[in-house]
Nucleic acid binder design. Structure first.
Lengths: 340, 340
DNA sequence: AAAATCTTCGAAAACGTTGTCGTAAAACTA
DNA sequence: TAGTTTTACGACAACGTTTTCGAAGATTTT
């Protein structure tokens, strides 16, 4: 690791200057004469000197990097958010490192602490489906690490949050199903304590109510692992199809749940939307080549990532502590295809 | 950042011991008496002390973390590889951080240098479609940072490599298309200098030759950005369909190219496989709900990730320099569905 | 009882950087 | 010319660890 690394010390030796002089010259300090500065800079450039950011971080407590913690990356919603994050972060000269929790509470705690102690400058987080407890985030936040949440956000923690208008999205999708003539609409969703679950459920319920339809518990199925475990979705769907009053439509609440549900229905050789219609929250770029083409509630994922990053950088670079936090809500878009 | 952080110094003050004693006690050194050790450990546990890995890294030149550099994460092949990487890395107590290059040479260089100087212990890389030049990897490797390549590997650099049996995979897929009666088989692939491109092309050509079919340049289309830019694929496809002898089948060489091609054919309302059959390299988990269900050459992505990580850890933890490097080749699987 | 050996700990250096402070020489002021 | 300010640089401490070395006290060996 160390063999070829070039440090300030090498430059100082070669040029017969002190390390502090070299450091200051490199940073363009006014204490150093123009000649010395250009001498140092020229030489540093020539031998391809790169400052060691971890030493800088140690010294300054800043590292110009931000970490993203998401449940999974194999999910177009999250990967699009990450692209949004990178678009802003790179522009502002921050590096972005990504870690996934696989919906595991334990991994989330570990990775949070890891990022904290490797001193990233901030965290952008969407909470794992298993994480009922969010103390680990509160802890690092109290120690001065800025955190911004998106999508799955905790009520408890005071900070910036960026979400899609989940209520509206679920409302419109349900409304659409009702307009198509469906009366028994089921909802397959994630862990009941996640913010997105509550918000989307609320939209679903309101649409039913507005249309004078009953809200039936038997039509609402929670998947504790957010669809990570296929059996979970399979069981939920199976229970729905075993009901006396089988649902004639389903609203699925997440990317993974949507594709898994369609996949199972296809396996069961069920006619979509003939026997059962399907609308789901999903940002998959392949929705139009699904069979049938998938009606989707699409979240402004890229925008969410951009917004979260702007807010985070604001927190990081603010001189004095910020206390009035905002919750940005971005609108979803309902794209109707053939599955409904 | 620093406010709440607990350091060895805090412990040493509280217990009236020197920092060196505390450090050694924490690491279980035999120089420290059992009582002192348990005293220190108990106290450290109680106040929730966490060693600062970046300081450890500075001191020891090791950080117990490895970085993964891939073109994109919104791609089931790469996300599955990453899952394989994490499965081994976490077991061996390494943290995994992920960065994407978006097929950009420039970003690849930047992120490589960034990881090097934040002193990760090793790199697992699949090269960007733009990167004809791989000097940046050679450079960090010469400075002592172990690198393992997978999937898109450079010929030039001597190190461990893990790839799918691309030749065999392409051969079987082409063979299958021929058996289905197709005689004009096109091949849409990535940048011509990528290893996977050459290997898959070779398999395609051999299958044609074995069956006494001509190899025609007009049927072979390269996409310099690996399908990242949709127009690229669109143009390639358009040119193929404008030929006098339109192809009656296509073999696509990557995840993104496969879905994009199907998507465009769907837009063009072409009958797949009636007018044109399709087989492609892809690890998408949604292949069975595509319209039509997609015939896929599936790579053992998870296994590739696992293998690459085992080899990397071996490089990292080896006492003396390793010079006999291996290239592991893992078999693909052809899953025939309805698109061919 | 003196000498040798352990045992247990602390002082200090090191990793690569930055920032504070001190200081010699040069430039100005009176 | 003496005094004051400015310029341009170097010494040193600090960030949080680990490790080498030395040394005091305890224990064992002769």
């Amino acid at each position: 690791m160390k063999s070829g690394t070039i440090t300030i010390k090498d430059i100082s030796k070669a040029l017969g200057l002190s390390v502090s002089t070299v450091s200051k010259a490199l940073r363009g300090s006014h204490e150093i004469s123009a000649e010395t500065q250009s001498l140092v800079k020229e030489y540093a450039g020539r031998i391809n000197y790169k400052p060691n950011p971890i030493a800088q971080g140690l010294r300054k407590g800043k590292s110009k990097s931000i970490a993203v913690i998401v449940p999974n990356i194999d999910n177009n919603f999250f990967s699009q958010v990450i692209n949004g994050i990178e678009s802003i972060a790179h522009k502002k000269d921050y590096n972005v490192i990504i870690t996934q929790t696989h919906e595991s509470y334990e991994r989330e705690v570990l990775t949070t602490q890891h990022h904290f102690s490797r001193s990233v400058d901030g965290l952008i987080v969407s909470i794992s489906a298993e994480s009922e407890n969010v103390d680990h985030f509160e802890e690092v936040q109290n120690k001065g690490l800025p955190v911004v949440f998106f999508d799955r956000v905790p009520d408890k923690i005071k900070t910036h949050k960026v979400i899609a208008n989940n209520l509206q999205g679920a409302f419109e999708a349900t409304q659409h199903l009702i307009q198509q003539g469906h009366r028994h609409i089921a909802h397959i969703t994630s862990s009941d304590f996640l913010s997105i679950t509550a918000e989307r459920l609320e939209g679903y319920i309101r649409a039913l109510e507005v249309n004078g339809l009953p809200v039936e518990d038997q039509y609402i199925k929670y998947c504790a692992h957010g669809g990570m475990i296929k059996e979970e979705t399979y069981d939920a769907l199976h229970e729905l199809l075993a009901l006396k009053n089988k649902p004639d439509a389903i609203l699925t609440a997440s990317d993974r749940l949507s594709t898994t549900t369609l996949s199972i229905l296809t396996q069961l050789k069920m006619n979509v939307p003939g026997e059962i219609a399907l609308v789901g929250f999903t940002n998959t770029i392949s929705a139009d080549i699904f069979n049938p083409p998938f009606s989707a509630v699409v979240q402004p994922a890229f925008e969410i990532g951009k917004t979260a990053t702007e807010l985070l950088v604001q927190l990081i670079e603010s001189k004095r502590p910020i206390s009035n936090f905002e919750k940005r809500v971005l609108n979803t878009e309902l794209i109707i295809r053939k599955s409904s």
